[in-house]
Every structure is written in C-alpha cells, then in structure tokens.
C-alpha cells in the first residue's frame, strides 16, 4: 500500500445469491464483481467503463459502503474501511461521497433544496443556524444554482439543475473522494457537457479525487486520467486515457472503441470495416469458462476457452487480462483511419 494512493482496492468481490426453482431450493451466485484490484491517487480521476451488468456500479457502491463486499479489501488513506464500524466508519463516510445517475429518483421530492443540501451537514457537523445557511447558499452558488431557489422543491428544476443539487450534496462535507455513478447518462447532450465541466472545475478548486463510472467511453474520456474497462465482473484493461485510446491491448476495448458512432459522416465508409463484437453479453450467473470474453472475441483460441488470463502489467502502468494482447497500433481506430484531426470546423 503506497502512501500516495488515496484509495486502493484488492481482490474486491461481490456475489449476489440468486434463488430459483421449486421452493427456491436452487441457489446460484451471480458474480457481479469478481476479484477486482486497482488504486486511485489523490487528485486524479479514474474512469470505469463497461456495458450493462459488468459490475461497475456494484464496485462504486462497495467503495461508498452502500454494499458489503463478499471478499476483498478497500484501503482508504491506508486504512481498510471494510473493517471499520460505528463512529470510525461514520467519520470516514463524510470523506467518501457519491453522485447518482438519476437526478429524478435520488432526491427526496418532499424536501426543499435548502434541506436537501443541508442534510449531510446536519448529520456530520454541528453548525449554528446562520453558519448552516451561509454554507448552503454558498454551495448553491458554487454548483451554479441561483441561491434564491433555496426554498423550491426538486420537481421545479430541470434534470441538469437537479444534478447540480446532487453535486452540492456530495461536496457539502468537503469529501476527498467522490464516486460519480453515471452522473450525466440521464441528461441531454448540451446539459451533459455543462455538468462535466462543473465537475472538472470543482476538482480543481477543492482537490477532489473522482471515481467516474459510465457506460460509454466518450463521456469518460473527457474527465479521466486513467480508465479501467470492465466486462462481466472483471477489469479487463486499465491504463492511462491516452494509451487506452491510442493503443488498446484488450480486444474488448478495441471493440468498444470501434463500436462508438463517429460524429463525422465522411468517416462512415471507413467504419464499414470496423471490428464488430458479435453476440450478446453472457449471463453472469453462468459466465463462460476461461476468459469471460472468449465467446465474443474475434481472436479467441483454444487456450482462451480453457484458461483464465491473469490481470498483468504488460507495460508500465498498462494492465491487461488477455492471453493475446493486441500489439501497438493493431486494429485501433486511429491507425486504421490515420486521422487525428476530425474536428468540426465552423464557418462564421
């Protein structure tokens, strides 16, 4: 455990028991997260990307202690928080906060904005009425909400503004780490970028560390320093943003990259030759043998069906779980199209 790692998880695992059949006698484990390890340095943003059911949200929920891990350790500032109880745990909770995906269901509709933002402060600190008011109005301003709206209810706000309320709640206690669980997925494109820019601004201002969870690479790319790609409960690749986009080593990452529609119609014919990942995501109750990705992998061999690849550091800071990691430049969108400058040029 290194000092500069704000958070380090080791062998994090969560199984959910699924009961089925007559009198629910058949028990199966849904392996939502299986032996996941990573760290986040103070001040950095780690993105976690993956499709439905890959375990990204479960991972986030375990880190904020909303779910208890089946196995594994979560070190926060050198201390294993899975072992904490009572007052010690309560204290740590104020350092780790979460922003949820759906700003419509995550705010109590009967509470006014003021009370929504004051709630975490009341729980963790004892401030006078005046100090509390100052603090809440100040927070509203910081996240770009008009303080005169403090007496309003959540339904009077648009999705983007509601997410700002959620962000104000999350930063109210000056946390060190915020888990952002798909904070912009429910928002319109023009509002998404407002919220992303706000998160970046807050990070600079208050030195916050983010674990940023999303289902798509485009959103994660803008905010992350490093990115972890998850598939069926496992991290299959983890590296810096630049390496992930320029030289992905895992075939799944390559497939994810090539599946993203390019907002440039002149590239559409080139995209016809893209690597399409075939098939569907398998049932996590009965994951495939060997490498979990092998049934959909265009490069899978006999070995992949039998032996699970180790999650190893193949290059400095570049972790991959694959028997045949892609060599540099092979199959990436950049090398194929040879065009880094697809920028939109405006005419005035």
């Amino acid at each position: 455990m290194r000092e500069d790692h704000l958070l380090e998880v080791k062998g994090l695992t969560k199984f959910f028991e699924i009961k089925s059949g007559f009198l629910k006698r058949n028990k199966n484990d849904l392996k939502a997260v299986h032996d996941v390890s990573f760290f986040i340095d103070a001040g950095e943003t780690l993105g976690i990307v993956g499709e439905s059911g890959c375990g990204k949200s479960t991972t986030g929920n375990m880190i904020v202690q909303l779910l208890e891990p089946t196995a594994g350790e979560i070190y926060f500032e050198g201390e294993d928080i899975t072992k904490l109880k009572g007052e010690a745990l309560r204290k740590k909770r104020s350092d780790i906060q979460i922003i949820f995906q759906d700003p419509y269901s995550s705010l109590n509709p009967r509470m006014r904005v003021f009370d929504l933002i004051a709630e975490p402060i009341r729980t963790h600190e004892s401030l006078s009425k005046k100090e509390l008011e100052e603090r809440v109005l100040d927070l509203m301003e910081v996240v770009g909400l008009n303080p005169s709206y403090a007496k309003r209810f959540p339904h009077e706000f648009s999705g983007g503004q509601r997410q700002r309320i959620g962000i104000a709640r999350a930063i109210a206690l000056n946390p060190k780490l915020i888990v952002c669980d798909e904070p912009v997925s429910a928002l319109d494109v023009s509002i998404q970028s407002q919220i992303l820019n706000l998160l970046v601004k807050l990070q600079k201002e208050f030195q916050i560390t983010y674990l940023f969870i999303a289902h798509g690479l485009p959103v994660v790319k803008h905010i992350s320093d490093r990115i972890a790609v998850m598939y069926l409960g496992k991290i299959v690749e983890l590296t810096t943003k630049e390496d992930l986009f320029l030289k992905p080593k895992h075939p799944y990452t390559e497939g994810l990259l090539s599946a993203i529609p390019v907002p440039d119609p002149t590239q559409r014919d080139l995209k016809e030759h893209r690597v399409l990942i075939k098939g569907d995501i398998p049932n996590p109750v009965h994951p495939p043998s060997g490498c979990v990705f092998h049934p959909r992998c265009p490069y899978a061999t006999e070995l992949c069906t039998q032996e699970e690849p180790l999650f190893e550091e193949k290059e400095a800071g570049h972790f991959v779980a694959c028997h045949y990691p892609l060599s540099e430049g092979k199959g990436t969108i950049y090398s194929r199209e040879g065009n880094h400058d697809g920028e939109v040029h405006f005419e005035s």
């Binding site: 998404q192 970028s193 992303l196 993203i260």
Partner: peptide
C-alpha cells in the same frame, strides 16, 4: 461542439 468526440484527443468540451 458539446458532443464528446472519442476520436480526437482534444480536451475542451464546449457546452450550451
């Protein structure tokens, strides 16, 4: 401008 573009390494995200 506010559509995130994966295929460029440009950082700035313009919002409306």
């Amino acid at each position: 401008a506010s559509t995130p573009k994966v295929h460029e390494l440009k950082e700035e995200l313009i919002s409306i």
